[in-house]
Amino acid sequence: MQITKEQRVDETSAMIDDIEVREDPRASEIVLETRDLDVYYGAFRAVRDVGLRIRANEITAMIGPSGCGKSTVLRCFNRMNDLIESARVEGEVRYHDVDLYGDKIDAVEVRRRIGMVFQKPNPFPKSIFDNVAYGPRVAGQRRGLDDLVERSLQRAALWDEVKDRLKDSALGLSGGQQQRLCIARALAVDPDVLLMDEPCSALDPIATGRIEELMQEIKHDYTIVIVTHNMQQAARVSDRTAFFTAEVNEESDRRTGLLVEYDRTQNIFSNPSDGRTEAYVTGRFG
């Protein structure tokens, strides 16, 4: 009997599912999934062959040396790569089994469900209130903004610090506060998934600790994907970890990223199955 490629893929993935279900009967629903994902900038391939499954109410960390394409992959999840004119995506990114790069899918609609927090805190040069209310406002919400802003700031553990100066410029906040404001801003649109692109890299250890605590608190309501440079951070906060690395292209001297290993965080750090992962997590390279 002829077996088509698709069938084979289906069977393989079914097997993987079986294994995971056996390991953990409570394994939650798959929210995001990539299949054979390649990302190009012009003719240059930045990432190749990424296959990932991200599950609901978990924190998934993506780690790896710089230039390994982890941020590029993250930006595929809410189509932020659309903003770069030369960027092109091949393969599939599925969100609740809908192909995000499918025909007529609206990036705006995607981003209202899959929010993002960036590497450098990037509040708008507006008041604290207007920053948080921005997303709901552009989405058309006209009433109840006061409550919503308060609730979002509370979730981001920032309310007590700013409740008396909501009208002040957000640029007057400290770096850590600004990043929590950005989290509040992302939460205010009531997303399903929160993507965090090295959210603590510009922060001091205390501010980093607060953001990490915050992630643990909110993960019961959201699915979180975090890209981090910091292996300890991945080990501390995440449930699953994807390790990426880069291979140097001989001709162009540019690097193409690829996914090496994806597993429970515990396994990645204590019992990696790939030598490259082990080398990285033990600090031998990267």
Binding site: Y95, H96, V98, L100, G102, K104, I105, D106, V108, E109, V110, R113, V138, A139, G140, Q141, R142, D190, D192
Partner: peptide, 27 residues
């Protein structure tokens, strides 16, 4: 009517091919 507010009233939180295409008015 305020079309954007109106769209917000009608927008569904479901996730499927249809809802992710967004509302035609905004496009």
């Amino acid at each position: 009517s305020d079309a954007i507010a109106g769209d917000a009233l009608r927008s569904a939180r479901r996730v499927d091919d249809d809802t992710l295409r967004g509302l035609p008015g905004r496009r």
